[in-house]
Design a protein around this nucleic acid. Sequence first.
DNA 1: TTACGTGCAAACCGTTTGCACCAAT
DNA 2: ATTGGTGCAAACGGTTTGCACGTAA
Lengths: 173, 173
Amino acid sequence: MLWEIDFGDTCGPNFHGRTFMDSKEIRDQVVEHLRKKGLRVTKERTAIIEAAFGSSRHFTAEELLEEARKLVPSVSRATVYRTLPLLLETGLLHRLDLDRGERYYDPNYATHPEHNHLICLDCNKIFEFEDNHLEARENEITRALGFAPATKHVRIEATCQRLRELGFCQNRG
Amino acid sequence: MLWEIDFGDTCGPNFHGRTFMDSKEIRDQVVEHLRKKGLRVTKERTAIIEAAFGSSRHFTAEELLEEARKLVPSVSRATVYRTLPLLLETGLLHRLDLDRGERYYDPNYATHPEHNHLICLDCNKIFEFEDNHLEARENEITRALGFAPATKHVRIEATCQRLRELGFCQNRG
DNA sequence: TTACGTGCAAACCGTTTGCACCAAT
DNA sequence: ATTGGTGCAAACGGTTTGCACGTAA
């Protein structure tokens, strides 16, 4: 129950041997969330939702704006920032705690609700992985401490073994 | 190898049944780090180091400034921000990824280099814990993916079981 | 029709930086 | 004496917000 997800040049992942969940299905879930809250389904929000979940790539608020504008050019930065919290509420999008300057958002919680991150300090790429053992132990600990788990996240910073052994990082470039 | 660390009102932890490592010993390590880098040990830096590691409480940059000024009133915000990266470099201080507005810093990596965090969504308190099983599994996974682990961190958000069962949270107030 | 949502631009706030002065080595 | 460190205040950059207009329900 452990697999590797190779990101693209910057932060774009793809789960090996898996089909990315139909983006329309995810969008419907988000729209449903808006409806339940009595909020309006505007064309701007629709564009932002589409942009956020249209690929499996991590993104910043600015990148989301750019992408949403390809669908609805009039979308404003303010609306992106006002919509992001609504998406986070659904649990389908998470804010990542990369310690880079800007905040990154990860849309892959729709398809992999319990995934974790490994950040390569050599090539700066991000890999996603899931592991049942880890998850089970996290639950045990949480209950032992008298809590009920809500969100769990493991973040591992690591270095390429190959870089140290061979002098180059296979993930680089 | 699992224990609970109850924070104070906001973010102040204390490891149960453990003596907090002598703050002087930690300061010496940090000073040594500065010397190795050929940097000067000024009274401002000394005050900031003292303030950072003088208690086990988490803190923001602003709180660190306030605390350092109790020791050396002339310490400036700029110097705090310029010194923080030096402390992080030592590995004795970590920046926390609480998703609150401001960044928090955790000075407990001197005494507990591999500890993790559990955040109670009901009372907003933070607990620290260590676990060998978790750690071992993290290492396994990292190596299986072809990496050598550098930094590992588990962050669990959870709700008080007691709040749900009894209607109140024992950690509140 | 009428709130709610939007774009715009200004405000905000934590953090960084340029500069002239200061002090650890 | 030298050169890195400091305080100050301005700049910076991501995010939030007030306001008047627009539009989904």
